[in-house]
């Protein structure tokens, strides 16, 4: 697709040059150039976090505290409702919530990434991906802050006894999550800039998905009830976010891991990136016109 453009340019000197705006090459170049400016987005991402907690004493650790309080509240309530042992359920909810926050923010903030950076996009000719990387990096920093609670839980509830070498699978799982956050931000970012209804649709969707994804409940508890309810556990498998959650959560709390979650996530990652590249090829140059 992209190979034809430079060729035709080289051949014809008198023929008007063909614009390469809508080539895959330019799409890749954008991703590469943006990555090369990492000094910029690394400091901007940090700045974003420091900004939010400026002049507060605890600073960014408010992120940790907020998530901790939320996880504890949900954990205690649902452990009682679902009749689960608290020392197992609380770490489960905590890790689920931490991972969910990362997914949720990638979708919601990803869809607003270009709109929020309108000023910069219109004034400075930098790669679009700079804004994407900045966003994902910021989310990763949030995630890192939240990991503090995880560490506390591991110690407090003796989760470390369940951990093994297999728990290291969480590292590639998080890497995969980050890779997905990038394509999600590119795709939703571009389309939500053009169609301003997409961002509100996504924010209600994620609210729905939060309830439908096994974060506050477990698929095992559905299966355990048997009958028609057990059938619903199979429906939960249709939710792609469940698989994303599972590849990170299971190793982190030392639960048995199933390989098929990985296959599904890898499949979606490849498909999502293909979509992101198509979007970059076709609409990258349009974003400054749309914001």
């Amino acid at each position: 697709m992209s190979a034809s453009a430079p060729e035709s340019e080289a051949l014809a000197t008198d023929v008007p040059p063909v614009s390469d705006s809508q080539t895959l090459r330019r799409g890749f170049k954008d991703l590469r150039d943006g990555f090369a400016q990492r000094e910029l987005w690394l400091s901007l991402g940090w700045q974003d976090i420091k900004q939010r907690y400026r002049r507060s004493v605890i600073g960014p650790f408010w992120i940790t505290i907020a998530t901790g309080v939320q996880a504890t509240a949900i954990g205690i309530l649902y452990a009682a409702l679902l009749d689960m042992p608290l020392n197992e359920f609380l770490p489960y909810v905590t890790v689920g919530l931490i991972v969910w926050n990362l997914i949720n923010a990638s979708i919601i903030e990803g869809s607003e990434v270009f709109i929020a950076n309108e000023g910069l996009i219109k004034q400075l000719p930098s790669a679009l991906s700079v804004h994407i990387y900045r966003l994902v990096w910021r989310q990763l920093l949030f995630f890192a802050h939240n990991l503090v609670i995880y560490v506390i839980m591991v110690v407090a509830f003796a989760v470390w006894r369940d951990l093994s070498w297999a728990s290291l699978a969480a590292i590639p799982a998080v890497a995969l999550l980050v890779l997905n956050a990038v394509w999600v931000s590119i795709v939703f970012g571009i389309f939500a800039t053009r169609y301003r209804d997409i961002a509100p649709i996504l924010s209600s969707m994620t609210l729905l998905l939060f309830v439908l994804t096994p974060i506050m409940w477990t698929t095992q508890s559905l299966v355990a009830q048997g009958g028609a309810v057990a059938e619903r556990a199979r429906i939960a498998e249709l939710n792609p976010l469940y698989h994303y959650l599972e590849i990170v959560r299971a190793p982190m709390i030392g639960q048995p891991q199933a390989l098929y979650h990985w296959y599904i996530v890898l499949g979606i990652t490849v498909a999502g990136w293909a979509l992101a590249l198509v979007a970059l090829r076709k609409y990258r140059a349009r974003v400054p016109y749309w914001v």
């Binding site: 008007p16 040059p17 063909v18 614009s19 390469d20 705006s21 996009i121 219109k122 004034q123 400075l124 000719p125 140059a285 400054p288 016109y289």
Partner: peptide
């Protein structure tokens, strides 16, 4: 100026 800076890539024609 924005065309020349590469912020706006031309909707028709080309800019290098």
């Amino acid at each position: 100026l924005r065309l020349l800076s590469g912020i706006y890539e031309p909707s028709r024609g080309s800019a290098k």
